[in-house]
């Protein structure tokens, strides 16, 4: 019976100012849909990975602005909800092959980062709970590795850029830093390079072709090889 009661619990929300009653078990996206809205904008993966549904909300009689991914936030009573369809943001255009992994690259391509006043508004807006200001600061002093690590969980929703009083687009700075780090600073996987050379030298082709042939002509024999293969995953 307790389960039944839980199921039927409704909350009052305001969707772009209009009042609706929706089940308390919904997230913000589903609450919109329950109320009768169909999304084209402001929606993407519905799983917390794409940043399309990043949104702001307020509670009735509370000055504070809150931030969330609409697909990952439960509705609560007296929430004021909206969708944010698009955020215009400047992205630098570059050829990664022509960049050097020097700290100054970030400032050269995104000079506006120097305007950061460390107000931390970006961090407060981040639905991924990243220390956005800290990575913008790391970008100013050219610490590419720090920017990469602090920004890694960024899903590029754009809320930081929308809130920044210095008009910085932190998430694009993070993207550039991570690519510089991945290409130039992180150690190369030499075992991968070695394997690629072996593949170019056709080292495995004979066996692969043999397996392909078995798969077509003698699948039982291939099954035996499969079952008998050594499993080393410890």
């Amino acid at each position: 019976m307790e389960e039944e009661a839980e199921k039927e619990k409704m909350v009052k929300v305001y969707i772009m100012g209009r009042e609706f009653e929706v089940p308390a078990t919904l997230n913000i996206v589903k609450a919109f849909e329950y109320a009768g809205y169909r999304f084209v904008r402001g929606i993407g993966c519905r799983g917390g990975y794409c940043g399309a549904c990043a949104t702001v909300y307020r509670f009735k009689d509370d000055y504070r602005l809150n931030f969330a991914l609409a697909c990952q936030k439960a509705v609560e009573n007296n929430m004021y909800l909206t969708i944010l369809p698009f955020m215009p943001a400047e992205k630098a255009i570059y050829d990664l092959n022509n960049l050097k992994p020097r700290g100054s690259v970030l400032l050269e391509l995104y000079p506006e980062i120097a305007r950061c006043v460390a107000c931390n508004t970006c961090t407060k807006a981040c639905p991924q709970e990243l220390e956005v200001m800290d990575y913008v600061q790391a970008a100013i002093r050219g610490d590419i590795e720090e920017v990469s690590n602090l920004s890694f969980d960024c899903i590029q929703c754009g809320l930081c850029a929308m809130r920044c009083p210095a008009e910085i687009v932190p998430y694009n700075v993070g993207q550039l830093a991570r690519r510089l780090y991945g290409k130039y600073i992180a150690p190369q996987a030499m075992h991968t390079h070695k394997r690629v050379e072996e593949i170019h030298a056709c080292v495995f082709d004979e066996e692969l072709d043999n397996y392909s042939l078995l798969a077509k002509e003698d699948v039982e024999k291939l099954k035996k090889i499969y079952v008998e293969r050594e499993i080393k995953v410890g």
Binding site: A114, V117, A118, N120, D134, Q137, I140
Partner: peptide, 22 residues
């Protein structure tokens, strides 16, 4: 730990608090 850029140019306008945050 977690230091931020000092702001580089001190705000001379005393009511411009934003630039004293850093």
């Amino acid at each position: 730990p977690r230091w931020v850029c000092c702001g580089t140019v001190s705000s001379l306008t005393t009511d411009d608090l934003m630039h004293h945050l850093a």
